[in-house]
């Protein structure tokens, strides 16, 4: 099983580009057509947890308008973890979909 779906989404977002928490949350929200919303209360502790595990690395950068932001990038370990979790998730989702797409069902014998 995938340990954390939000972690998988964050790793996926960071595979695309080196970016900050705000953009990660926005990207996930946009790509999922608003179905997935990563709240700040989940996002930042998650980012810091992933950083602690060595899956991502954060650094402060100065953006346009002199704003300082902390951007994150995937590490080699993060890439490996993403590949692994992605594969597990896809297999699991396909399995769940097959179960849900089963039409009808076995008729129960009335007692």
């Amino acid at each position: 099983m995938v340990k954390s779906v939000p972690a998988l989404l964050v790793l996926k977002a960071l595979e695309r580009e080196v970016t900050h928490g705000y953009r990660i949350a926005n990207w996930i929200n946009q790509v999922s057509d608003g179905a997935l919303e990563l709240q700040e209360g989940t996002l930042y502790p998650l980012l810091h947890n992933l950083e602690k595990k060595g899956l991502i690395v954060g650094e402060w950068r100065r953006e346009e308008g002199q704003r300082e932001v902390r951007v994150y990038r995937l590490t080699e370990r993060g890439h490996r973890q993403l590949r692994q979790d992605e594969s597990i998730w896809k297999g699991m989702a396909a399995g769940v979909n097959r179960v849900l797409n089963q039409e009808g069902g076995v008729a129960h014998d009335p007692i």
Binding site: H20, G21, Y22, E40, Y44, H48, W60, R67, E68, V69, R70
Partner: peptide
Amino acid sequence: RASMVRRELLSHLDM
């Protein structure tokens, strides 16, 4: 660490 998280949250609020 708390200082780093505060900066990050303030940066998020700013954006």
